[in-house]
Design a protein around this nucleic acid. Structure first.
Lengths: 208, 208
DNA sequence: TATGATATAGTTCATATGAACTATATGGAT
DNA sequence: ATCCATATAGTTCATATGAACTATATCATA
């Protein structure tokens, strides 16, 4: 297997990045990600780490450094990054920085089917989403201010990005709510369903 | 099993929404989603549709309407939504509209590890991402203008949302690129790694 | 000194995902 | 008359995910 074939996921990237610093064992990776608040941001689940490590070992991107125990703790396996691992990491990182990827989001799905609610209820729920977004914004802002004293800013850009995206979503959601509230965007499920019947007819006939 | 226990995914939501219009078979669902351009937006893969349908049937949210064949085509199974399905759909929809969810994104992962590139290369790659984002924006804008003549606007809000988010990302990325370019945000991997050694020490010792 | 909370270090397993495959039908081009 | 591209309608299978579980060690507190 060629290491180039591996499409690196977020866990793989994170593991390679940590091992570029120094060899370490999986539990230390978890602790470091937690200390650096990367675990909240990257939404990584414990269970997936060991699978990711397994894939990286099989792909030759990392190797076992040593195994051993400290005191009477269970045995730890330390890993180190290989030269291929470093190459694959940098290449993958360059690609994901330069290439935006369409990622499915719950919010898009929700909006896709907003027509199934009546405008009044949609308004209420969008307002609630707005409030929830603002609460998250406040929370992240506070945390960011707190850590920016100790941590170099380059290590916080992803939090700045998250904040910017949350603010943009909040603004957009409020705009939509306002438009519905003011009657600039109206709909009626029943008449929409009549329209839909036409497109179903086309779809059921298949291609011409 | 209670239908309330089912955490509905995007495919499940989509299937239930379509079956609220009328009973239909899986292939017609695919055609309808395609006709309405929801497949691009929702990033749904063919193979997952049948699994989602299986889950919904087992959960009692949909049921078999009839099976039959047209001409010598393979047999088709039509499904209909049940009253529980309608309830679960509306409840789930209300929840995902009102509740923003943290979703892992490639971009956040990329930014998290931007420190591993040097500032000059980071600038180049961010500029490339900006260009790619703008190309996507142009493409979606064009499509949106094209279909908005035939399609009620409520059925296009998710595209408007996507466009707004892409624009926000583009603006933010360009801002970051500019800051790095102007030397307002600087870093040096080696000195960062020295800092990191301190936190690794903390992490390797575990809790106090 | 007993007790509960948390840290350490993973493994297991049910379920989810999506790429690839199967198999036939139809229409248009040659 | 034949061949190819595409439409129809799914199924299969390897891999990925993440919740839950195992099992011990250490520390703080009562």
């Amino acid at each position: 297997m060629n290491y180039m074939d591996l499409e690196l996921g977020i866990w793989e990237i994170a593991v390679l990045a940590l091992l570029r610093e120094a060899p370490m064992h999986p539990y230390q990776m978890q602790r470091l990600l937690h200390l650096r608040h990367k675990d909240e941001i990257l939404a990584l689940k414990r269970g997936s780490l060991y699978h990711a490590i397994g894939r990286l070992v099989r792909g030759g991107l990392i190797g076992v450094e040593k195994t051993g125990r400290e005191g009477k703790r269970p045995e730890r396996t330390s890993y180190r990054i290989t030269p291929e691992g470093t190459r694959a990491f940098l290449e993958s990182l360059r690609t994901i920085v330069a290439t935006p990827r369409r990622e499915p989001s719950q919010c898009m799905a929700a909006l896709s089917f907003l027509v199934h609610l009546n405008p009044k209820e949609a308004c209420r729920l969008l307002a609630e989403r707005g409030k929830n977004l603002d609460a998250e914004i406040a929370q992240h802002s506070t945390r960011l201010r707190g850590v920016s004293a100790h941590v170099a800013r380059i290590n916080l850009v992803e939090s700045e990005y998250l904040l910017a995206m949350l603010k943009a979503e909040s603004a957009w959601i409020r705009g939509l709510e306002k438009e519905i509230h003011q009657g600039k965007l109206v709909w009626d499920l029943k008449s929409i369903l009549r329209e839909a019947a036409a497109s179903r007819k086309v779809a059921s006939q298949g291609r011409k």
